[in-house]
Design a protein around this nucleic acid. Structure first.
Ligand SMILES: [Mn+2]
Ligand SMILES: [Mn+2]
Ligand SMILES: [Mn+2]
Ligand SMILES: [Mn+2]
Lengths: 224, 224
DNA sequence: AGTTTGATTTAGGTAAACCTAATAAGTAGG
DNA sequence: CCTACTTATTAGGTTTACCTAAATCAAACT
């Protein structure tokens, strides 16, 4: 039987996927607890349950963290697909402000049907990235590996903005207002005050981004 | 604090509203249990909890059923508004087949935000009826009383189709396929086999509806 | 009034998903 | 190699929303 999963299980799987991408290898209980905002004990509990299932979503060993099984990965990518399609839909079709996309998608991703998914994907012309610049996993559960790097990991140069984290609403809002959106070309220099000075396109003024804000921005080398 | 409610609570409130409309007066636990598909004991439990809250959604007395409080009624109408707006949206914007509207709306009605509600209402031009012909409660929680009657309650005559129940997918599908939709003019005669013979518009052929199917259809006197 | 019946409530439990506090396991520095 | 620290697990609750089985209540019938 095709395994069922609850909202909570889905959130664990998504968190394991995300953290496992951030640094490959097994994902620690504590990291999951912090990411999910639950107590470490709750994570241990859940991982034991998930690993003990008939066809487990995860591979777990006491004290050494957890990995997604192929079917766990599949499910996680399915939810990420829902999330990003919903964000795109809210933005393109329902004219949501950019900073409200994430919260709504975070809830709805668990409750839409396959038909809903299929219909919004069709309506949007089967998009491959969401409004934040993140890749949308395909229906088959494929997602290209991320080749961008964090703005805080470069010193200076000219780049294309790849994506902006969807998690911090005020930052999203202000970057959007200042024209810093995925796809824009930027020239980056370091300010003395260890902030990041970003000149957008060929504009004369520059944005000054704090390290906290810069950490939310990912960029790609300019391959002209 | 503005009372919060869970998916389950919302479903109880909606059921109380629906059954209370069907026949005015207090709603019996058993009727709720049947409608919600849970055990009668579960209903009693829930009603006691609901009635014991600080600002209760219901007024409940042992052995004599339950009534919505004003705030309970408000909440129930809010969920019905979500349901019917979602159905309309799925039908008009996402081109869902008519028989798939209800199930999706039944789930999503609990999880959309006020922003989502507002946006789909705007996109649809603030509709007042859903694709099944049911009135959509206003933002302020007003809904006109139903003046239509059940097709099984009339003998013969010419009418306008008011609405078709959204609950029975196959019936919906076949009535839709045969052109029996809200707003159409129909001439009704009783067949010998105690079914209902319905001529749509000025067509020459007639549909033969079993009593079970006829019960799903509501009509209005033709006010030319 | 006494009895039967059907509706309803009480009692006692289960399953998910959390929690806190206490314990144990790994990892490193002295 | 042993202690201190960090990380993770176990133990023992809680809450929500269900369940079944066993009372109890109210209404209807002789
Ligand atoms: Mn998001
Ligand atoms: Mn899907
Ligand atoms: Mn419906
Ligand atoms: Mn609403």
């Amino acid at each position: 039987m095709p395994q069922r999963s609850t909202e909570s299980v889905d959130n664990y799987l998504k968190a394991i996927l995300t953290l496992g991408e951030r640094q490959p290898g097994r994902v620690a209980s504590n990291a999951l607890a912090a990411h999910l905002g639950v107590a470490p004990a709750s994570v241990t509990n859940m991982l034991q349950k998930l690993a003990a299932a008939a066809a487990p979503f995860v591979e777990y060993e006491r004290h050494r963290g957890v990995l997604l099984s192929p079917s766990g990965r599949r499910r996680a990518l399915e939810i990420v697909r829902h999330h990003r399609l919903i964000e795109t839909f809210l933005y393109e079709v329902l004219d949501y402000p950019i900073e409200e996309l994430h919260e709504e998608a975070e809830r709805l991703e668990h409750f839409i049907s396959e038909r809903f998914e299929e219909r919004i994907a069709a309506k949007l012309g089967h998009p491959t990235t969401d409004p934040h610049g993140h890749a949308i996993p395909s229906l088959e559960g494929e997602m290209p590996p991320r080749s961008s790097m964090c703005l805080t990991d470069v010193s200076e140069g000219t780049f294309i903005v790849d994506s902006i984290s969807d998690r911090d609403a005020p930052t999203l809002r202000s970057l959007q207002a200042n024209g810093l959106t995925p796809g824009t070309k930027v020239r980056v220099t370091r300010s003395p005050s260890d902030s990041y000075s970003v000149r957008i396109g060929r504009s004369t003024t520059a944005l000054d981004l704090s390290p906290e804000v810069a950490r939310e921005v990912r960029i790609l080398p300019l391959t002209k």
